[in-house]
């Protein structure tokens, strides 16, 4: 009789509460504060309301799920499950992993916190991978080890429409901050494991899309050994606010990579508040 394992993540996995539930993943909504008031991502604030307030210039601060809410969920789950695999957003972007790791000390080995530096669509894929590994009979510890072993086997490129929000939030690495500030420039940033870093610069949407497609193609071929008929990765896409532009890009991406099923999701609000509307991202995660 194999162990019953619960997979837990947070709303930075770009899933809605409904989707998570359908997939059998347990999700903590990320809290954030607008004008001193706390909201829960996807629970007490819709995307529409959020972007209206972001564009309106409201000060938005993000936070981690409270220890209380984390432990409450774990306690509930452990009534039904034997072990928990907890996969928070990347430790390079938030302290959630560290806090969860501390809390997990109180649960002996029953709660395994995974530090595999995924975010958004790649985090979502990690959760699916965890379920898959549990299905293969691994215990929580083994799943954690496996996911951490392959933590660098994913790649994200994200084109930011304006540097305004990143600057406001102080989330730019020095390299990214050095990007010219005189001209209107759209940076393409990359996430390989840890932090956001600058990858390339462009002045047009079309230019940015081409840069990302070329970069992903290069990763697929050189890092993940993909060929035309050997699709060794999941191809994913994320965006902030502009669904129409995202759909257009998805079509272009499909044309560039025929045969791939592209998973596209809006970026979570707690990421959106740092990069602003109009961002587009492409990602790949290597299949397990």
């Amino acid at each position: 009789m194999s162990l019953k394992i619960a997979v837990v993540t947070d709303s930075n996995s770009s899933m809605s509460m409904e989707e998570a539930k359908e997939l059998g993943i347990h999700m903590l909504p990320m809290p954030f504060f607008i004008g001193g008031k706390e909201y829960l991502d996807g629970v007490t604030l819709t995307h529409e309301e959020f972007y209206e307030r972001l564009k309106g210039g409201d000060e938005i601060h993000t936070s981690q799920p409270s220890p209380d809410s984390v432990m409450k969920l774990w306690d509930e789950l452990l009534q039904e499950y034997d072990e928990i695999v907890h996969i928070p957003m990347s430790s390079g972007l938030s302290g959630s992993t560290g806090s969860a790791y501390l809390l997990a000390q109180h649960y002996d080995d029953k709660v395994q916190v995974v530090d595999n530096q995924r975010i958004s669509v790649t985090l979502r894929q990690s959760c699916l991978d965890a379920l898959e590994l549990a299905g293969r009979g691994m215990n929580a510890r083994q799943i954690k080890d496996e996911l951490e072993r392959v933590k660098f086997e994913s790649s994200i490129y994200i084109m930011i429409n304006t540097l305004e929000y990143l600057k406001k939030g102080g989330r730019l690495t020095p390299a990214a901050a050095a990007i010219g500030t005189i001209l209107r420039i759209k940076p393409v940033l990359q996430i390989q494991g840890e932090k956001l870093d600058s990858f390339a610069k462009t002045r047009t949407l079309q230019g940015g899309k081409e840069i990302m497609i070329n970069a992903i193609r290069k990763d697929m071929e050189t890092r993940f050994g993909c060929t035309e008929n050997f699709h060794n990765v999941h191809l994913e896409m994320a965006y902030t606010y502009d669904l129409e532009e995202a759909e257009k890009f998805k079509e272009e991406l499909s044309a560039a990579f025929p045969g791939y099923e592209i998973c596209m999701r809006p970026l979570s609000l707690s990421i959106a508040c740092h990069i602003g509307p109009g961002a587009l991202a492409v990602a790949v995660s290597k299949k397990i």
Partner: peptide, 8 residues
Amino acid sequence: ITAAINFS
């Protein structure tokens, strides 16, 4: 300017 921007 375009060339300089595209440098990586």
